[in-house]
Structure formats: structure tokens, C-alpha cells
Design a protein around this nucleic acid. Structure first.
Length: 444
RNA sequence: GGCCCCAUCGUCUAACGGUUAGGACAUCGCCUUUUCAAGGCGGUAAUCGGAGUUCGAUUCUCCGUGGGGUCACCA
């Protein structure tokens, strides 16, 4: 009861079937329901649709519930359809008694099929309902024939269970995927048969693969835990999912969950399907990593790197260089015993050219020697990037910034891809910087 | 195939009859401490087609085309 709903007129639900891990699409549907409930002070209900005993498992249910919790969506009420069979039976009996349904004897066409099932007596009528996102949608239910609503009195099927539960739970708005549009007329038919009030419908667009098809397992990572495992933050996942088919009034893109609740407006949900773009997810992730507190980011870096990095300068370098947490391992590969980059033994066979660049060996030695003597004049306490820059800038400008700073950077880090030399020197400190430069110059 | 839904840059989208069609991601170029990253500046890039309605259509209507969803004793 974390959300403390105050508006009994708004009750929404997410109704996942535990036949797989928490899917991206399910998470997004849950998010829109959650945002709608929160925005309107309504209740957010989780209902596990596990009427299919063969395919439903507790493991999947746990994955779904854990995933939602992980993303920060707290629910107000929880139900499991497998625990409500007697309720469905009551409705089934009543429907049969009232002539809205009947037991049908038929041949089992497939393995495991029943000889007797319960079918809905289709009144063959035209149905129109108003979708909050798409407007009026009409169907002729004649096409549906007498569809099966239960295998037996104890084994209800999807359509029956959904309608009975939405009714019993006083669901006010059914916000679900577009793939349910064609299920709606069947469900409205059952609602009329049991005298249920018709909820308001909002069918949200699907999340599509690059091939513009409904996202499926074949399209790579489709479950939330996979993205969490790769090191995407919950904030980024939420933010990204919200923007797949929804957009606020202004141009703000980076949102926290609370900000999303404030800005959410169901009428601004898109009609067309949206392609899942991992690049944009990455961008959202970077943005949310930028917002992390230093304490939190430090904790995460050390958890992933298995190191104990505390130097804020190094942490900043890492923060600017990663897209997802699993990048931390790669970025901190050279971070170690010196508290910064490990100083590799420079290979004399190949690196010289890399160090000299456009200068000659003699010039490079001259430049680095000058830098060394300049550094020796500085006190330990003056070894700050800003001071170092001031001390060397004019000289570097005179001789050529690249010609001077490139070998310095290379010798300090031992890497051709490295942070700017002044920051490197500050991180290393005076002693280590000099050791590396002097050691390096002897090998040029 | 029947039924249903949808249609603005490569992608996510803004516009609710009048805009040089805006923003973001990606991409390209320049700058920034000649690298990587971050940052700054700038560029390329879209209204599916055809009829209407209207003084005026991205926007409203119809047709076409294209894409998608759905047609279980799954959900």
C-alpha cells in the first residue's frame, strides 16, 4: 500500500502472465498504468494471469515482480488468478443458467483437448467502444462465433477471467497493448452477459524491433533483467520506456520517475508503434549516470571494478567514459597499483614513433627533459592540473603543443588513449609523475 | 486471406488549419589541452500518393499504397 491511492474512481492494473521474464513491453505497459494511477491518485493493481497451468511458473512470476520493484513501481493490490477459480466458477454457472453460455460436447482435435468445453453464446451483434487513444473502434462480433471461455467450470480461460476480475476489482481504465484491440469486443460481450460496467479502454502502441515487428525473443535482449544486468540504470530504463510512445508538452527529455508522474498525460500517447532504439537508451543511461551522487557512483564503480577507487578525479574520468556500468571493467582496466593507470613497460621496438609523432627523437627528449625540470620546481602542493598547465603552457605553445604534450601524456599513462596530461599529473602526484617521465625518457 | 489499428527526418517525436515544419538520438564538420571521453558551435535529413473541404492543409474527409496487430481448449 505504498502509493496511498486517494481517488477510488481510478483503478488500473497490469496483468502479466508468468510465462516468461518481465518483458520490455510489459514493463512499459506497467509504467503507463503506474503513471496514470499516480497522476490521478488511483490504485495500481498487479494481477498475475496464471490460468494456463502448463506455461505459468513461480520463477517467472518472481522475475516479473522483482523487475517491477527494481524499476520502482510499487503496487497497491496483488492478485493471482489461479487462486480465484471458485469465483470464475460462480460466474460460469450463472452465465450458463442465464443462457449466455453453454457446455459444448465436441471432438478433441488436439492432444490434451477436452471433449467438453464451455462456449459463450455469441449474440452476433455490432460493438463500438471508445478508445482513449484511438477514438471509436467498431467490430461485428459475428466473426467471432461462439468462442470458448473455459475448458471446464474449474478451468477458466483468459477472456472470462479478465472480465470477471476487471469487474470484481472495479477496474476503471484498461490500459494495455495494441495487440489486445481485437480481444476487446469478446470481452465487452462477456461484460454485458455478467452485467459488468464497461471500463474505459486505452490501447497503447507496440514496441517494435528494427524490422518493425512486435518485439520478440528473437530480437535479442527483451527482458528487463537483461538490461539491468548489462548495467543500465533503472532511471534510464524507465525514462526511455516512457518516451517510447509518449512525449511531454515541452522538450525536456531527461526525467525522474517523479517528474514523469507530474508530466504524464495519457492523451499524449502516440498511436503508431515505436522502434526500440538501443542507442537512445544508451544516451538516457549516460544522462542518468551524470545525475548520480558521488557516493552512489563511487559505490557502483568499485562494485563493478572490484577496486577501491576514491580519487574524485579518477571517478570523474570514469563517469565521462562509460555508457553502461559494464563498461566500467574496460575503462578501469589500466587502473591499479599506482592508484591510477598501470605504467606498462614501454616496448622499445614499436612505441617510439608513437611517442615522437612528428618530432625527432632528439627533439622529443629535449621537450620531455624541459618538462621534467619545470616540474621539479613545483611544490607537491602545487601539483594541480591548473598550476601544471600554467607552468607548461607557454613552453608547449612555443614548441608545438602536440610535440610537447603528446609524449608527456604517453609516458605518464603508457597508453595512446588517455586523459589530458595535466589531469594525469595531478592524479599521479609529483613523485610518480617524475618517475614515469624519467624512466620513460631513458627508453625513448 | 477476413477483421482491426496505424502513417512527420535513419530512429523517438513537436505541431491540435496559417511555423523558414521544432527538439532529441544517431550521423557529418569545426572548436576545445593534436588521443579517448565530456562539452561548445554548425550541417545533412521528414510531412507515403491521389482526390476533395477550405482563402489556406502535416493537421479535416474519402480512396489508394505501405506497415503492423489479430484470427487457440495461450495470454
Amino acid at each position: 500500500m505504498k502509493n496511498n491511492p486517494t481517488n477510488p474512481a481510478v483503478r488500473v492494473r497490469i496483468a502479466p502472465s508468468p510465462t516468461g521474464n518481465l518483458h520490455i513491453g510489459t514493463a512499459r505497459t506497467a509504467l503507463f498504468n503506474y503513471l496514470f494511477a499516480q497522476k490521478n491518485g488511483g490504485a495500481f493493481i498487479v494481477r498475475i494471469e496464471d490460468t494456463d497451468k502448463e506455461r505459468s511458473t513461480l520463477e517467472y512470476e518472481k522475475n516479473i515482480l522483482d523487475g517491477m520493484k527494481q524499476l520502482g513501481m510499487e503496487y497497491d493490490e496483488f492478485y493471482r488468478q489461479s487462486e480465484r477459480t471458485s469465483l470464475y466458477k460462480t460466474y460460469l454457472l450463472k452465465m450458463i443458467e442465464d443462457g449466455f453460455a453453454y457446455e459444448s460436447q465436441e471432438e478433441a482435435r488436439e492432444e490434451g483437448q477436452r471433449a467438453s468445453v464451455i462456449r459463450f453464446k455469441n449474440p452476433n451483434t455490432k460493438i463500438t467502444f471508445t478508445d482513449m487513444i484511438r477514438g471509436d473502434i467498431s467490430f461485428d462480433t459475428t466473426d467471432l462465433s461462439d468462442f470458448v471461455i473455459a475448458k471446464s467450470l474449474e478451468e477458466p480461460l483468459y477472456h472470462l477471467a479478465v472480465v470477471v476480475d476487471d469487474h470484481e476489482m472495479n477496474i476503471s481504465h484498461v490500459i494495455r497493448g495494441e495487440d489486445h484491440i481485437s480481444n476487446t469486443p469478446r470481452q465487452i460481450l462477456i461484460q454485458r452477459a455478467i452485467g459488468a460496467i464497461q471500463p474505459l479502454y486505452a490501447h497503447i502502441p507496440l514496441i517494435l524491433s528494427k524490422e518493425r515487428k512486435k518485439l520478440s525473443k528473437r530480437d535479442g535482449a527483451t527482458s528487463i533483467d537483461q538490461y539491468v544486468g548489462l548495467g543500465y540504470t533503472k532511471e534510464a530504463i524507465i525514462n526511455f520506456l516512457a518516451f517510447l510512445g509518449w512525449h511531454p508538452e515541452d522538450d525536456q527529455e531527461v526525467f525522474t520517475l517523479d517528474e514523469l508522474i507530474q508530466a504524464f498525460d495519457i492523451s499524449r500517447i502516440q498511436k503508431g508503434g515505436a522502434i526500440f532504439d538501443i542507442e537512445k537508451l544508451g544516451w538516457f543511461n549516460k544522462e542518468h549516470i551524470k545525475k548520480l551522487s558521488d557516493e552512489e557512483f563511487t559505490r557502483i564503480v568499485n562494485e563493478y571494478s572490484k577496486l577501491e577507487i576514491e580519487n574524485p578525479l579518477i571517478l570523474t574520468l570514469i563517469r565521462e567514459r562509460i555508457t553502461i556500468y559494464s563498461d566500467i571493467t574496460e575503462v578501469t582496466k589500466h587502473t591499479g597499483e599506482f592508484g591510477y593507470l598501470i605504467y606498462p613497460t614501454i616496448d622499445l621496438e614499436t612505441p617510439s614513433k608513437a611517442i615522437w609523432k612528428d618530432s625527432t627523437r632528439e627533439q622529443t627528449i629535449e621537450y620531455v627533459s624541459h618538462v621534467i625540470s619545470a616540474l621539479k620546481h613545483l611544490e607537491d602542493s602545487d601539483f594541480k592540473a591548473q598550476n601544471l598547465k600554467e607552468a607548461l603552457w607557454d613552453y608547449a605553445t612555443e614548441k608545438g603543443r602536440g610535440a610537447v604534450l603528446w609524449p608527456v601524456r604517453y609516458l605518464l599513462s603508457g597508453l595512446d588513449r588517455s586523459p589530458d596530461p595535466f589531469v594525469s599529473m595531478e592524479i599521479l602526484g609529483k613523485d610518480k609523475s617524475l618517475v614515469r617521465l624519467e624512466d620513460g625518457i631513458s627508453k625513448i
